[in-house]
Amino acid sequence: MKLVVVSAGLSVPSSTRLLADRLAAATARHTPVDVQVVEVRELAVEIAHHLTNGFPGRALSAALDAVTGADGLIVVTPVFTASYSGLFKSFFDLIDPAALTGKPVLIAATGGTARHSLVLEHALRPLFAYLRAVVVPTAVYAASEDWGAPGLAERIDRAAAELAALMTGLTRSDAAIGSNAVTGREAGAGSAPDTADALRVVPFEEQLARLGAA
């Protein structure tokens, strides 16, 4: 499975990138994934050109394809003026509104104070709900005082487990649908594939329980 991490940090080194890397590593501990990181900072000029002339550069085009083709996303932004950064928003403004439909997304943010933690719920979650992505229940915010303090590692692991469960559940459903379709063809023209089980919606709690038992 392909996991794409979108990090919108502006500095080097970046606490935003550090949080993104920890979330990706935690997800990889729960399920095998190929991780690709998109550093939005490196695409700033191409994003500006695309917004003004309508044509993406080569690096930006590759990044957009990676995001839309991923099995799951981790998106992390620094907090500016009580919201996500303008560069972060500009990047996702370039993605077709239907391209993230049903895609599992873990949202996270970093900031200088814990007072900005609600940015996850009043800005990031509504953005990806509008894009019809499936946002995992646990969002992760890391203020300056959270690094090295109790609690952050547990939040990271819980959110990563939820993302892994969603990614694994969707992949298994796709495989089951494909398998049933083949079975139906092999059975002959008069037999229809049994897709009842393949199309069954697996409750999120059941997915987490299966992941924990694996």
Results as ranks from 00 to 15, higher is better:
Met1His: 10
Ala114Cys: 04
Arg158Phe: 04
Ala181Lys: 06
Val134Leu: 12
Thr171Gln: 08
Gly69Ala: 11
Leu51Arg: 10
Ala176Trp: 06
His122Leu: 05
Ala62His: 01
Gly169Lys: 07
Gly9Trp: 10
Ala63Asp: 11
Ala143Thr: 06
Gly190Val: 02
Ala129Asn: 10
Phe92Gln: 04
Ala159Lys: 02
Gly54Ile: 11
Ala164Thr: 02
Ser83Thr: 11
Gly151Arg: 15
Arg158Tyr: 14
Thr168Ile: 09
Ala82Val: 01
Thr113Ile: 11
Tyr141Gln: 06
Glu205Gln: 12
Asp197Phe: 00
Val33Asn: 08
Ser144Glu: 09
Ala66His: 11
Gly102Met: 10
Leu94Val: 06
Gln207Trp: 07
Ser173Asn: 09
Asp34Phe: 03
Asp34Glu: 14
Val38Gly: 10
Pro203Trp: 11
Ile95Asp: 05
His116Ile: 01
Ala123Asn: 04
Val135Cys: 01
Ala8Gly: 14
Asp71Gly: 14
Ala196Val: 00
Pro32Phe: 06
Ile156Pro: 12
Val12Leu: 06
Val79Gly: 01
Leu120Ser: 03
Leu23Ile: 09
Leu199Val: 04
Ala159Trp: 13
Ala176Ile: 06
His49Tyr: 00
Leu64Thr: 09
Gly112Asn: 09
Ala48Pro: 02
Ser90Asn: 14
His122Ile: 06
Gly178Phe: 15
Gln36Thr: 15
Thr110Arg: 11
Arg17Gln: 09
Val38Asn: 02
Arg58Trp: 00
Gln36Asp: 15
Ala123Asp: 14
Pro32Glu: 03
Tyr141Lys: 03
Ala209Gln: 03
Ala59Cys: 14
Ala160Leu: 05
His122Asp: 02
Thr27Val: 13
Asp96Leu: 13
Ser90Glu: 05
Gln207Asp: 04
Ala59Ile: 14
Gly151Glu: 09
Glu39Thr: 10
Pro32Ser: 02
Leu43Asn: 06
Asp65Leu: 08
Trp147Ala: 08
Ser179Met: 10
Asp174His: 12
Thr31Arg: 08
Ala139Arg: 13
Ser61Glu: 05
Asp71Tyr: 02
Val37Leu: 09
Val38Thr: 15
Ala159Asn: 03
Asn180Tyr: 05
Tyr84Met: 10
Leu60Ile: 13
Tyr141Thr: 04
Val201Lys: 01
Thr81Met: 14
Ala123Trp: 02
Glu186Leu: 15
Gly190Tyr: 03
Met167Ser: 04
His50Gln: 07
Ile95Gly: 09
Asp34Tyr: 00
Val12Gln: 09
Asp174Lys: 15
Ser7Met: 14
Val38Leu: 12
Ala99Leu: 11
Ala70Ser: 08
Val136Asn: 02
Pro193Trp: 01
Pro126Cys: 02
Ala133Pro: 01
Ala196Thr: 12
Leu87Glu: 06
Leu127Ile: 04
Thr68Ala: 15
Glu39Ala: 15
Leu43Cys: 08
Leu118Asn: 07
Trp147Cys: 07
Pro203Cys: 15
Leu3Gly: 07
Asp34Asn: 05
Asp34Gln: 15
Thr68Met: 13
Thr81Tyr: 02
Ala161Ile: 07
Thr101Phe: 03
Val134Trp: 04
Val37Met: 08
Ala44Glu: 10
Ala24Gly: 01
Glu121Arg: 05
Ser144Met: 14
Ala8Trp: 10
Glu42Arg: 14
Glu205His: 13
Glu42Gly: 08
Ser173Val: 11
Asp65His: 11
Asp93Cys: 09
Ala176Cys: 07
Leu127Asp: 02
Asn53Met: 10
Ala213Gln: 05
Leu3Phe: 11
Leu87Asp: 04
Ala153Gly: 13
Trp147Thr: 10
